[in-house]
């Protein structure tokens, strides 16, 4: 009898664990499938011409060079507008803020900024940067919009990086009569830099893949040339992919998967770079 009970419990456990393994497999296998599928189907489109030429015949021929360039401009613009601000906000929260209602309010705001849907950021950018500030449908307006969206991330990652700097360094610096800002500038920031950069790269990677905001703020499907000023319209990979897939009849599948592959490579290589830096920093901090 006793033996029977135990084996039933054992059976329950085995069944349960198999289900957990099954869940894990259902979570992970499709991811690998997606990646492999895109690589396999998109690789055929890749060529020197595809990567370096402008599109022609409504994107059915030619390449995606302007979209690649536009995406890099967007990543750059996003980080230019969101990183300094994010770092300073992170510094404020760790070095200056007291534990009071204002700080709680700021933290709540950051949390909610991270949760605002991207399309809502798009409308915000349209209303504020495109229309009210009259930047028009431009690289500048889109960068600012994406920067607002990236803000939550740059603030949080900078804050974590600054918090991780040991207190001893702050005390050592302050104790020889440096000002608070000197301590931050010359001791804390250099130490926090790898963490800050990791966050920045992640934010850039995210910006590269965003579609909804730039759809609203005005990316173009086809443009004759590259943008020459921040006030120019621009092409971007995700928007180009969207239009090619959803709005151009008769678009070849190979081209579509090719664009997806390029976008994926840009986004995932930035992600891996961030992970790489994070691991390196951890090794350096705990290794020696």
């Amino acid at each position: 009898m006793a033996a029977l009970t135990i084996s039933r419990r054992e059976l329950t456990q085995r069944t349960a664990f198999s289900l957990l393994v099954l869940a894990t497999a259902i979570v992970t296998v499709p991811v690998l499938f997606i990646i492999i599928y895109i690589v396999v189907n998109g690789a055929g489109a890749l060529s020197w011409e595809f990567l370096t030429q402008a599109p022609s015949q409504a994107g059915k021929a030619g390449g995606i060079f302007p979209a690649i360039v536009g995406t890099f401009y967007l990543m750059l613009g996003t980080i230019i507008f969101s990183l300094p601000v994010g770092v300073l906000a992170g510094i404020y929260l760790t070095e200056y803020a007291r534990a009071n209602w204002l700080t709680r309010l700021i933290n709540m705001a950051i949390l909610n900024l991270a949760g605002v849907p991207s399309i809502v950021y798009g409308l915000f950018g349209l209303g504020l940067f495109v229309l009210a500030m009259k930047f028009g449908m431009s690289l500048l307006a889109a960068s600012l919009t994406l920067a607002c969206q990236a803000l939550a991330m740059t603030i949080t990652t900078s804050r974590e990086a600054v918090i991780a700097v040991p207190r001893e360094y702050r005390e050592g610096s302050l104790a020889i009569g440096t000002t608070k800002w000197q301590t931050i500038r010359h001791v804390i920031l250099p130490q926090a830099l790898p963490g800050v950069i990791t966050g920045a790269i992640l934010a850039m990677s995210r910006a590269a893949g965003e579609t909804a905001p730039i759809l609203v703020v005005g990316a173009a499907f086809i443009l004759p040339g590259l943008p020459t000023s921040p006030f120019d319209q621009f092409m971007a990979l995700p928007y180009h992919l969207y239009t090619a897939a959803a709005h151009v009849p008769g678009m070849s599948k190979v081209t579509i998967w090719g664009i997806a592959l390029v976008l994926l490579v840009v986004v995932l290589s930035f992600n891996s770079l961030a992970v790489f830096i994070r691991i390196r920093v951890r090794q350096r901090r705990f290794g020696s």
Binding site: Y169, G172, I176, T178, T179, Q182
Partner: peptide, 29 residues
């Protein structure tokens, strides 16, 4: 704090070169 310096329980040199550590204060001043 310039006039009243402090040395801590656990040595806390900055993660910089020996020279930069000593020059840190004068530089800031």
């Amino acid at each position: 704090r310039k006039r009243v310096g402090m040395v801590f329980q656990k040595p806390n040199p900055f993660p910089m070169s020996v020279l930069e550590n000593v020059a840190f204060g004068p530089r800031r001043h």
